[in-house]
Design a protein around this nucleic acid. Sequence first.
DNA 1: ATTATCTATAGATCTATAGATAATGC
DNA 2: ATTATCTATAGATCTATAGATAATGC
Lengths: 242, 242
Amino acid sequence: MIRRLPEVARGGRPSSASGAVLPAHLLTIPDQLGDTRQRILFVASHLFARQGYAATSTRQIADLVGIRQPSLFHHFESKAAIAGELLDYDLDVCLPLVEALAAEQGPAADRLYRHLRHDVAHLAGAPYNLGGLYMTEVTEQPGFATYRRRHERLHQAQEQIISDGQRRGEFILLPARFVREAITGILLRTAQVYGGGREPAPAGFADDVASLVLRSLLVDPSRLDELRADVRGLGARVVAPA
Amino acid sequence: MIRRLPEVARGGRPSSASGAVLPAHLLTIPDQLGDTRQRILFVASHLFARQGYAATSTRQIADLVGIRQPSLFHHFESKAAIAGELLDYDLDVCLPLVEALAAEQGPAADRLYRHLRHDVAHLAGAPYNLGGLYMTEVTEQPGFATYRRRHERLHQAQEQIISDGQRRGEFILLPARFVREAITGILLRTAQVYGGGREPAPAGFADDVASLVLRSLLVDPSRLDELRADVRGLGARVVAPA
DNA sequence: ATTATCTATAGATCTATAGATAATGC
DNA sequence: ATTATCTATAGATCTATAGATAATGC
């Protein structure tokens, strides 16, 4: 029995995928993302950010990548594994830093500022849009217990720094949990809107976000300028040496 | 042919539903929500906030309400209609107010403060949790074009007030769009966490949120105390008379 | 042999409709 | 007659598996 070949390439190795602009209003895949695996992560992350994890089907991801739905499972064990890899991309870098900063002794304003600046820069500079992943929708699913725990550690570290700053008289007095939720809200939203190159981030974006938060918390807002100068001087050495 | 009656009540009028605590870690329905329609809105809103709209099934809503899945459709035409009614609950009240405030001429700080205070109080005081609805996941669906447009009007009004404040020298200079996204992030997150009685909101919650935002924006943060006193004096008369 | 794709499809959902059943109100 | 529930089920998904096909690398 003879079967008609479908219009798309089938079998064998990659077929020099065109820099696909499918439902163009949705998503344009940059040409340099040639690797199918990378393309899947890119497309999935942006769909997760726009529609949510549950509302994004594997078929939709595959369509935008330019492969058939079952071909996804050659690269990832499951849809959850795609989300997991994206979460790792963020947590592997940001969790160690914020925990190190929480354990430090110096002024809390500096530490919070460095954390925020780094986190936002990481999110905005990533090739993926990670703004759709830190929802209970994802992390409260059965298979994601590990990520939920790491996410909670991140939150604890943030609240630690906030409490430190309040104890030291640097920050105004509001429940640390509440302040942290407000910060989380800003980070998630900006990641969702400006993350992964979805929209061009304003120049100095990471500094803007970090400064906005610090201004809202500092008892003495004039410290902000000094803070920004200090951290700029530090350059890439974000964590203080032992 | 004789059919065995199921264990739950069937047919006829409501059967004095017990103040159900089903999968108790998920949700407790307050007893005073006797009306099935109200119970559906309550349960659905909290599930939307926790899991997202798409990830919440009509079966799950029905289970927590204590009815069978198809019985939902006696009270609502569709799952989307439930979300629509919840969105109306917020927009019908908050959109007119913020548009009135955007059209006013006075100091922008007062107007932004009043908008935020009112919005947060409305969200935190609502019997429903409205924090899961203002996602593109919902508003970008085909049937939700009306809500998306109203939501955009809300954003425009907010940006109007922000720009006014910058032109008048009250607010620091950052892209209005960016400031608005940060505010949206805070509002959504706090609605999600503290909305609909999910967690007891700290005393003075609405004022805390509004003050936090204003502190981050005011060129002269000392204006904040004066601002809070003014608005408190205004009492319930939130919109200035013509 | 390995890698990457495909077709076909199983099995589990999920939303919504059709139509029966029963309690109440007129 | 109206209202609110139920059972049964249609039809459309959605995730993942099985197994064929083809290109490359050893």
